[in-house]
Amino acid sequence: HDVTIHAGDKTIHVHGASEEFLRIIEQAKRDGIHEEELLRLIEELVK
Rank of each mutant, 00 (worst) to 15 (best):
T4L: 05
H15L: 11
I12W: 09
E36T: 13
A17C: 01
L22G: 02
E44G: 08
G32S: 04
L38P: 00
G8T: 04
K10F: 10
I24K: 09
E19C: 09
K10C: 02
R23Q: 09
R30L: 13
G8F: 04
I24D: 01
E26N: 09
I33Q: 04
E20S: 10
D31M: 13
D2L: 13
E20V: 05
E35S: 14
V14Y: 04
I42H: 00
E19H: 13
G16Y: 07
E36C: 13
E44M: 12
G16D: 10
H6V: 14
A7S: 07
V3Q: 03
S18D: 09
E37G: 10
E36A: 14
S18K: 04
S18W: 08
I33L: 13
K47V: 11
L22Y: 08
L38N: 00
K29S: 09
H6Q: 14
R30G: 04
K10W: 06
D9V: 03
E26S: 08
E35A: 14
H6K: 09
V14F: 11
E44L: 13
T4C: 08
K47R: 13
D9Y: 01
E44H: 11
I33H: 04
A17V: 15
L39N: 03
T4A: 05
E20W: 14
R23S: 06
D2T: 15
A17G: 04
I25K: 00
I33R: 04
H34K: 14
I42S: 00
E37T: 10
E35H: 14
E19I: 12
I42W: 10
H1T: 14
K47D: 07
V3D: 03
H15M: 09
G32K: 05
K10N: 08
G32C: 01
G32N: 08
H13D: 05
G32E: 04
T4G: 02
V46M: 15
R40K: 13
R23I: 07
K10M: 12
V14I: 14
K29D: 02
L22N: 04
I25G: 00
K47S: 12
I24A: 11
V3T: 06
L45I: 07
E35C: 07
I24R: 13
I12G: 01
L41C: 01
H15N: 08
K29E: 08
K47F: 13
R30I: 10
I33D: 01
L39Q: 05
E36Q: 13
V14H: 02
L45D: 00
I5E: 02
L41W: 05
L38H: 00
A28G: 03
D9T: 08
R40Q: 08
D9L: 06
H1C: 09
T11I: 14
E37I: 10
A7D: 04
I24M: 11
D2I: 15
H6W: 03
R40A: 11
T11R: 04
L38A: 00
H13K: 07
E36M: 14
L45S: 02
I12P: 02
G8W: 03
I33W: 12
K10L: 12
K47N: 13
I24H: 04
S18L: 06
E20M: 10
E37D: 13
A7C: 09
K10R: 10
T4S: 06
H13A: 05
H6A: 09
I42R: 00
K10S: 08
I33T: 06
I42N: 00
V46D: 03
E35N: 12
H1Q: 13
A7E: 03
D31L: 12
L39I: 13
D9R: 03
G16P: 02
E20Y: 12
Q27D: 09
I24L: 10
H1W: 13
A28I: 05
V14L: 12
S18T: 14
R23C: 03
E44I: 11
R23M: 09
G32M: 06
I25T: 01
E35F: 14
H6T: 14
K47I: 12
H15P: 07
H1M: 14
I12F: 11
E36L: 14
I5W: 00
L45V: 05
K47E: 08
L22P: 00
E19S: 11
D31W: 10
L22R: 09
L38S: 00
H6D: 07
E20G: 06
H15E: 07
H34G: 15
E26G: 05
H6L: 08
F21G: 01
E36K: 11
A7L: 15
E37W: 14
E19N: 09
V3M: 09
V46N: 06
K29M: 15
I5A: 03
L41Y: 04
G8L: 02
L39W: 15
E35Q: 12
L41Q: 01
H34S: 15
L39R: 06
A7W: 14
I5S: 02
F21H: 05
H15G: 04
L22W: 13
E36S: 14
D31K: 06
V46R: 07
D31S: 10
E26L: 14
A17N: 03
V46S: 10
I5Q: 02
V46L: 15
R40D: 04
G16L: 07
K10H: 10
T11V: 14
L39C: 07
H6F: 03
A17H: 04
E37S: 09
D9A: 06
A17Q: 05
H1G: 10
G16I: 08
I25V: 11
E44A: 12
D9N: 13
D2E: 11
D9Q: 07
T11A: 08
R23D: 05
D9C: 06
L45P: 00
R40I: 08
I24Q: 08
F21Q: 06
G32L: 05
V14R: 01
G8H: 05
K47G: 12
H1Y: 15
H15S: 11
E43K: 11
T4Y: 05
A7H: 09
Q27L: 12
L41H: 01
H6E: 11
E43W: 15
E36H: 13
V3R: 01
L38I: 07
S18Q: 05
I5N: 02
G32Y: 04
E35R: 07
Q27W: 06
D2K: 12
H34W: 09
E43I: 13
I12K: 01
E44S: 13
E20K: 04
H1L: 14
E26Q: 10
D9S: 10
L39M: 12
I25A: 00
G32A: 04
V3E: 03
E36V: 13
I24F: 09
G8M: 02
L41E: 00
T4M: 05
V46C: 08
V3A: 05
E20F: 09
T4N: 06
G16R: 02
R40H: 07
H34C: 10
E19K: 09
R30A: 14
L39F: 14
I25S: 00
